[in-house]
């Protein structure tokens, strides 16, 4: 049993560059493990999921992209706001001629690119529909839906579709749909997970997002600390490295024992690397304290120096599951 039992919609956000798409993919795999059926949704028209799962570019159609361990499966959908708008118009209005006229006049463009409030309602609306959809036997079509959401800087506004739309469309069906989505997003069936690195700006944005989401009455889920480096050095060694006081003779002796060159150039380079590593470790420690202070469940994911391939993604999913995220 994971920490998020009962959550149907997992929203994954994070500052740009923190790996939120990767974490969303790993979480989807972890949630699907053991026979689940999970949908992962992207809304930024980046085709990040296709690259992550190494499949052909996704369209506005739910496709199975990966099997999960134990018989589960992950499906993916790239929501295109234009398509969502057309679908919406067709579904609710059977607009026909007027729908085409609206498109010609640039209304669809207006609604999908210029008015982000409307765009957000459309893409979250599609996600909402998938999260609530039931199959012929009456059960949910998906056991969980993972939303690879916009970055932390925009997340509160993105999820707060109700207020962004009610200021514009104060009555009417868009308004009603926004209200329904808002109900789901503010319920305990939704959790917003934030991906961070142990760096100044991502941590700052994580803290800001926690505050903003809190203020908007949205449940903050876990904090995923991504790309955590292996420690390698002990506390005492880190201190010595920062002060440039590592035992050079011992390092040289070790190099000889390893059958490597032990000249000053190598020793200089290795101790300088150690110093940089120690500097960063000290900064990371401070950032970790800030994240700990947020008082949310925290998950750690290791750094993959060679980048993320599907194998790494399954490993990350396992790591998340081991820590109780799914």
């Amino acid at each position: 049993m994971g920490d998020w039992e009962g959550v149907r919609l997992h929203v994954v956000t994070g500052k740009g560059g923190t790996g939120k798409t990767t974490v969303a993919g790993a979480l989807a795999l972890a949630l699907a493990a053991g026979g689940g059926r999970v949908l992962i949704v992207e809304v930024e028209e980046r085709q990040g999921l296709a690259q992550l799962f190494d499949v052909a570019p996704l369209s506005y159609e739910e496709l199975r992209v990966a099997p999960a361990p134990g018989g589960g499966e992950v499906h993916a959908l790239a929501i295109d706001a234009h398509e969502a708008m057309h679908e919406y118009l067709a579904m609710f209005y059977r607009l026909g001629r007027a729908g085409r006229a609206l498109d010609k006049l640039g209304f669809v463009d207006f609604a999908t690119t210029i008015a982000p409030g409307l765009r957000d309602v459309l893409v979250t609306g599609k996600t909402y529909e998938a999260a609530r959809r039931r199959d012929s036997s009456g059960g949910f079509s998906y056991d969980a839906v993972v939303l690879d959401a916009p970055p932390t800087g925009r997340i509160a506004r993105f999820l707060d579709v109700n207020s962004s739309v009610t200021s514009l469309a104060r009555v009417g069906p868009i308004n009603r749909q926004a209200a329904a989505i808002t109900e789901l997003i503010h319920s305990p069936r939704t959790a917003v997970h934030i991906v961070s690195l142990l760096e100044d700006m991502p941590v700052q944005e994580t803290a800001d997002a926690v505050d903003e989401l809190h203020a908007a009455g949205i449940t903050v889920g876990g904090v995923v600390v991504n790309q955590v480096r292996e420690p390698h050095l002990r506390a005492r060694e880190l201190t010595a490295a920062r002060r440039r006081r590592l035992d050079r003779d011992a390092v040289a002796e070790g190099l000889r024992a390893a059958g490597l060159a032990d000249d000053d150039t190598v020793v200089d380079l290795l101790t300088e690397r150690a110093r940089e590593h120690a500097e960063r470790a000290a900064l990371e420690k401070k950032q970790r304290e800030v994240l700990d202070g947020l008082d949310r469940p925290t998950y750690q994911l290791p750094r993959y120096p060679d980048g993320i391939d599907p194998t790494a993604l399954y490993e990350l999913a396992g790591t998340l599951a081991d820590q109780g995220a799914a």
Binding site: L233, G254, A257, A258
Partner: peptide, 13 residues
């Protein structure tokens, strides 16, 4: 030579 081994790991990374 644990220290040297660690430094070599850092270097490789």
């Amino acid at each position: 030579h644990r220290l040297t081994a660690a430094l070599l790991r850092l270097h490789a990374e």
